Amino acid sequence: MEDISAYIESGILELYVLGDVTPDERQQVEAAAIKYPKIKAELDAIEKAMESYALEQAIEPSEHQRNRVLNSLLTNLADDKIFTKARIYTDDEDAKVVQLPARSVNFYKYGFAASLFLLVISIVAIIGLYGRLKQSTELITSLQSQNQRFSSQVNLMDGQISVLRDHSFRFIKLKGTPKAPASALTVAWSPQKKKVMIDMEGMKMPANDKKHQYQLWAIVAGKPVDLGLFDVKADTSGMKEMKAVEQPQAFAVTLEPRGGSVNPTMDAMMVISNI
C-alpha cells in the first residue's frame, strides 16, 4: 500500500466498522489491518468512538412515561379485591361465596406483578434501543455522504492527473483583455482527441452573477464556434470538459446572458489567445 494515510482518510474504515462494505472490501480492510499496525490502531479508535457516541446519544424514557407505568403497577398491587374472592357455584339452588386459598391468591397476584414489571423493563429497553438505532442511522447517513464526497474528489483528481499525463494535450494560456486585464484562463486542447478542457481551479476570472455566464469560443477558419458555458464561483475547482473542436486558430471567453449567445459579444470579451 503506497499511502496509508490516504487509505485511512478515504472513509473505508468507517464503512467497515458500520458493516457497509462489500465482501471484497471487508477482506481488503482486514488484510491491511493485519499488515499495517497504523490501520489496525485507526480501526480500534473508530470502533471506540462510535461506541462512545452511541452511549452518549442513548434516549432515556421521559419522566412522565416512567411515572405513569409505575403508578399503574402500584395501583394493581394494592387492589386486593381483584384477587381475594371468586364466586363458585354448587349444585344447590343457592350460590355460596368461598375463599380461595391464600397461597393461590398470592401466587397469581405476585405473578401478575412480576409480569407487569418485566413489561415495564421491556418498554424502557425498547425506547433506549430505538434512540440508539435512530442515532446510528443518522451517523451512517453522514458517513455515506462523506464517502460520496471523497469519491467525487478522488475522481476529480484522477481526471486532472490524466490530462497532465496525456502528452497529446497542449496548454494555451488565455490573457485578459482591456476589459478585464487581470483575468486569465488555461485551456487544455488535444489535437488528436479533439478534446477541450479548461482549468477551473487555476483561472482568474471575476465571479459571474445569476443573469450571466461565461462562454468559451474557438475561432475556426475565421469564424467563432461555441464550445460551451461555465460559471465562476468561490468554490470553483477541477478541470471542466467543454465541446470538441477541430483545428482552432484561437480561444476566447466572453460574458454572455445566461444560456449563452449565438455569436460572441465582442465588447464583453474577457480573455483571448492565439494558438
Score class of each variant (00 low, 15 high):
Gly176Glu: 00
Leu119Tyr: 06
Gly128Met: 06
Asn147Met: 02
Asn155Trp: 05
Gly128Tyr: 01
Ala184Glu: 15
Val187Leu: 12
Phe150Pro: 00
Lys194Asn: 12
His167Asp: 07
Thr186Gln: 01
Pro181Tyr: 08
Gly131Lys: 06
Gln153Gly: 08
Pro178Val: 14
Leu174Cys: 04
Ser122Pro: 02
Leu129Tyr: 04
Ala180Lys: 14
Thr141Gly: 09
Ser122Tyr: 13
Phe169Glu: 15
Arg170Gln: 09
Arg165Asn: 12
Ile140Trp: 07
Phe150Ser: 03
Ile121Val: 15
Phe169Pro: 15
Ala184Ile: 09
Val154Lys: 15
Lys173Phe: 07
Leu185Ser: 04
Tyr130Ser: 00
Ile172Phe: 07
Val187Thr: 12
Val120Cys: 04
Leu143Pro: 10
Lys175Cys: 04
Thr141Val: 12
Asp166Glu: 13
Lys193Phe: 07
Ser151Pro: 08
Gly159Lys: 07
Thr137His: 12
Gly131Met: 06
Ala125Lys: 02
Lys194Ile: 07
His167Met: 05
Lys134Val: 01
Ile126Leu: 05
Gln192Lys: 14
Pro191Leu: 10
Gly159Asp: 15
Ile172Trp: 04
Ile172Met: 06
Lys194Gly: 05
Asp158Tyr: 07
Asp166Val: 13
Leu118Trp: 10
Ser152Asp: 11
Lys195Pro: 00
Lys175Glu: 09
Lys134Met: 00
Gln148Val: 12
Gly128Cys: 00
Ser142Gln: 04
Ser136His: 05
Thr177Lys: 02
Ala125Thr: 07
Ser162Thr: 11
Pro178Ile: 09
Gly131Pro: 04
Lys134Ile: 02
Leu174Asp: 04
Ala184Leu: 10
Val154Ser: 12
Met157Ser: 13
Pro178Asn: 05
Met157Lys: 09
Ser142Met: 03
Leu143Phe: 15
Ser151Arg: 15
Arg149Ser: 13
Gly176Val: 01
Asp158Gly: 07
Ile123Lys: 14
Ser183Cys: 12
Ser151Gly: 11
Ala180Gly: 06
Leu133Pro: 05
Ser190Val: 11
Lys179Pro: 02
Pro181Lys: 10
Ser190Asn: 11
Leu119His: 06
Arg132Leu: 08
Lys134Cys: 00
Asn147Thr: 08
Ser183Leu: 01
Ile121Asp: 11
Leu129Pro: 00
Lys134Phe: 03
Ile140Arg: 10
Ala180Trp: 11
Ile123Ser: 07
Ser168Phe: 01
Ser122Arg: 07
Ile127Asp: 03
Ser151Met: 10
Leu143His: 11
Val120Tyr: 09
Phe171Ile: 08
Gln135Ala: 15
Gly176Ser: 03
Leu139Phe: 12
Leu185Phe: 01
Ala180Ser: 15
Lys173Arg: 13
Met157Thr: 14
Gln160Pro: 01
Lys194Leu: 05
Tyr130His: 01
Trp189Asn: 00
Ala188Trp: 13
Tyr130Pro: 00
Ser122Lys: 08
Pro191Val: 14
Lys173Gly: 10
Ser168Ala: 08
Gln160Phe: 02
Leu119Glu: 08
Asp166Met: 14
Ser142Asp: 04
Gln135Arg: 15
